[in-house]
Nucleic acid binder design. Structure first.
Lengths: 332, 332
DNA sequence: CTGAAAGCGCTTACAG
DNA sequence: CTGAAAGCGCTTACAG
């Protein structure tokens, strides 16, 4: 154990047995007699032999490694989805490499190019904002042309023929809006910091559809993370509002704060529905009604889809929808 | 591009030049003439040649990959530290593999064993709770004996001789406590959901020291994540409290909520100091005074330390302390 | 300036 | 049942 792991070659000279025999014995091949198997396995254990994964990978062309390419991990949705992915993968003999794109197309492309050749067997990806805007998807199709499996989750590109795990963003927002309308809210405002993303657009459309169906005119406030609170506050100062739907964690906290500083009661004067983790929802005042995306389940589904795809080398990828549900708490 | 990446061998038969020459040309060796270099590089580009990292790794014994082994990513400290690690690493030619231990010693050991042989060049680790309790550190020392570099951050084991990045947990809590005492708070309660971790113990000791120095008796409420709110509320019902220090995000939100539901004003009746991300602190009502751990900087420092260690193969590892600072906002 | 050969650590037909 | 040989895709002394 002085400096580096023992190899089959070293084991071979210790035992006076050929490298092939040792390899077979350690892989429990039926070709080897029980007696020698026993000797070899014992000696391997004694020296804490660990097969060199890199060599195995080179030989087999499989690395048992999956890349998870996501924009960020500071967002509770991705953090929890990653947890779901990792939980399933760690039950298999695969490993995961996590790469954060920070919404940069260049970084996403580089990641795919770097890992496509020999490093990973497949990719789980939530497509970054810039890629969605540029509509340049060559890195995905190239990886697939090179025999890698690809599964997209949440941030999905319809025109790329890969596995997909999505949520029902459109109808979840319709339903949430309808629920507010059903409890007599009329001036329902949508606060979005993710209007540039496809998921944001889908959610917005779901809201618009429900509003128009009820004969109300939609009001959409768009802002970046930093200014959501200010934008909301300003709107509250000059308009009557009796409900807010916020499309991510930042917007949700900002909405709660804006209503409170405006001296309105939640939910009496203004109902609030947001997107935050369950744990956080319980610790807010009042406890926040949320659209629950089941991020853990989404991650789990994406992971099981890619493992399946790699194992079966199947080409026809399927599409799974994990429905979001409305968790009604005290804020609505 | 039909099925899998092109190799040097294929390039060799296309160009009618030996594999060695191609390898040298692509690595810009001075041995090769500019003319052939040009030809080779152009053809490689045309066929989108990407060197097989696995083969390079096997040959060189270096993989340019670093494992980041952390308990979780659902905690804003680790999420942001990971962001700091990733940001620095992505500027280098290293990659990171992220492994989540979920506080399980077995998982941590397995991760180190799996990756120690050939897969990674080094480890950045925040030691899991169970390992701290069991005090079994063989997986760390074995990895180091196998020539891998190890850097611990935040969750650190004093007796293991590796690189370390920590924060001044003890003195940060002393100072926060003193600040509360300085503004005439007398009944200061500590709310902890991390009392089993070394960092939790250090923070608690810092609080105790400051309280005792001022002649006050410390009050420490311990709970798991789920019940912090209930524990805090119960205490508030039967005791007089004029300040709370909460040791992580869950405890911080729970403390705010408990005070509000107890119909006390923040900070007039009860001051609150907590541990949450800056972004979240701004979106809470009132804006929360926090002990800011500079998690991004800690991650960055750990990453730069391991890159340095791997590049120089130096054995004497250093220790860096990133000081936490008190960010005073409206809650105190 | 170019190429043949050895080798990184493994696995697996193929011989014996 | 055991072992010699080839090969995964690369790099790098060593010859020419």
């Amino acid at each position: 154990m002085a400096g580096s792991n023992i190899t089959l070659k070293q084991l071979s000279s210790i035992l006076g047995v050929s490298i092939s025999t040792i390899s077979k014995a350690l892989n429990d091949s039926h070709e080897i007699s029980d007696a020698t198997k026993k000797r070899i396995v014992e000696m391997a254990k004694l020296h804490n032999y660990q097969p060199n994964k890199i060599a195995v990978g080179l030989k087999s062309g499989k690395t048992n490694t999956i890349a998870v390419v996501i924009p960020s991990v500071q967002n509770s949705f991705f953090a929890r989805a990653l947890y779901g992915i990792e939980s399933l993968i760690s039950e298999t003999n695969f490993n995961i490499i996590v790469c954060l794109t920070k919404e940069s197309h260049a970084k996403e492309v580089e990641t795919f190019n770097m890992l496509s050749n020999g490093v990973v067997d497949g990719f789980i990806v939530a497509v970054c904002e810039e890629t969605q805007n540029l509509q340049n998807y060559d890195h995905f199709t190239n990886a697939m042309a090179n025999g890698k499996s690809v599964v997209m989750f949440d941030r999905v590109i319809d025109s790329v023929n890969c596995g997909k795990v999505t949520t029902n963003d459109f109808s979840a927002l319709s339903e949430a809006t309808q629920a507010l309308i059903g409890s007599d809210r009329k001036h329902i405002v949508l606060l979005s910091t993710i209007h540039k993303l496809n998921v944001g657009k889908l959610r917005t459309q779901g809201y618009i559809k429900a509003m128009e169906a009820a004969g109300f005119s939609p009001t959409i406030l768009e802002s970046d993370d930093q200014h959501a609170g200010a934008v909301m506050t300003e709107y509250l100062n000059t308009n009557s509002v009796d409900a807010i739907i916020a499309l991510d964690t930042d917007a949700s906290l900002a909405a709660l704060k804006a209503v409170k500083t405006n001296n309105k009661q939640i939910p009496k004067d203004v109902a609030v529905i947001g997107y935050v983790s369950e744990r956080m929802a319980h610790n807010l005042t009042p406890e926040l009604t949320t659209i629950n995306q089941h991020s853990y389940t989404i991650g789990n589904a994406a992971a099981s889809m890619i493992v399946e795809a790699i194992r079966t080398k199947s080409k026809d990828m399927n599409q799974v929808v994990i429905s979001s549900t409305l968790s009604v708490r005290d804020s609505s």
